[in-house]
Design a protein around this nucleic acid. Structure first.
Length: 266
DNA sequence: GAGCCTGTTCGGGC
DNA sequence: GGCCCGAACAGGCT
């Protein structure tokens, strides 16, 4: 379930191997998620390279290797990163594995909606496009002023769809958007033009709160958030709103399964 | 076996 | 131009 905090958690597995020197143990270029990556280039770039650091931004990850190489990873719907014993055997959907004397770093992705890409810079600095990514909702640079600017001239947009736009709110995915709207007490199909100032401010507040708390709780060790969150109750039909005690609704809004609480969200 | 799905992209349409 | 929707991608789970 890779949204902001889950992505951070997965990245921490590979980051734990920083300093180790890797070879490509195997790579399968046929799966859709690997097609951008040329096998020969990958081997030439990563073989004997040292993992220097790992970064996340929203749902994206970037791993820096010696030789000014960067491996970009997106987990899509079902991707995951693992750090295993060096001799761990290959499983069915393990498309890429890097091996050091101490670790096997695996990229796994059954549905192949993820993405791997390789980048190079002249000086080992982070690629310019990475530095230019917009601020994440939990970043200091994501100010109230910026938030209100993002909402301007989008009066017809549906608030749930808006929250899922990665170029605006990097890292927010389907469950996070539902959690944010539930806490802000906004019906997910509201058009931005109908939001009053107080509602916009509530949205801003809960957006940042959910991103920060998710990172703190899930990003740390993949714990589930407390039962007071919508999170625990949203996954299947029959859930009960932890605030109102009324059954939750599940509808398709903005093309996505959306769980919301009719008594609470107006 | 049918239906559902935590993400992204693309084409069509208003 | 902005934004919507639906389809497509592919496999695991219920």
């Amino acid at each position: 379930m890779p949204e902001l905090a889950e992505v951070f958690f997965h990245s921490s597995h590979w980051k734990a191997a920083c300093g180790e020197r890797f070879d490509v143990a195997w790579f399968h270029s046929q799966p859709r998620c690997c097609r951008e990556l040329d096998a020969a280039t990958l081997v030439a770039s990563i073989d004997s390279a040292q993992l220097l650091s790992g970064y996340t931004h929203g749902k994206r990850m970037l791993f820096a290797f010696s030789g000014n190489r960067f491996l970009e990873v997106h987990l899509g719907m079902t991707g995951s990163l693992h750090r295993l014993q060096p001799d761990h055997e290959e499983l069915k959907h393990d498309h890429l594995a890097l091996r050091s004397s101490r670790s096997l770093l695996v990229f796994r992705d059954p549905r192949q909606f993820g993405r791997l890409a390789l980048h190079e810079t002249d000086d080992g600095e982070l690629p310019g496009w990475w530095k230019d990514l917009p601020p994440q909702p939990h970043d200091r640079a994501f100010t109230r002023k910026r938030f209100h600017l993002l909402l301007q001239r989008r009066d017809k947009a549906i608030v749930k769809s808006l929250l899922l736009q990665q170029e605006l709110f990097p890292g927010v995915g389907n469950w996070m958007a539902d959690e944010i709207l539930w806490r802000a007490r906004l019906k997910p199909d509201r058009r931005l033009g109908t939001l009053k100032d107080a509602e916009r401010n509530a949205l801003f507040k809960e957006l940042r709160w959910v991103c920060r708390e998710a990172l703190r709780i899930i990003g740390k060790d993949y714990s589930d958030p407390p039962k007071q969150w919508l999170f625990t109750h949203r996954w299947r039909d029959g859930g009960i709103c932890p605030v109102s005690g009324v059954p939750l609704r599940r509808d398709t809004i903005g093309g996505r399964t959306t769980c919301w609480s009719p008594e609470v969200q107006l």
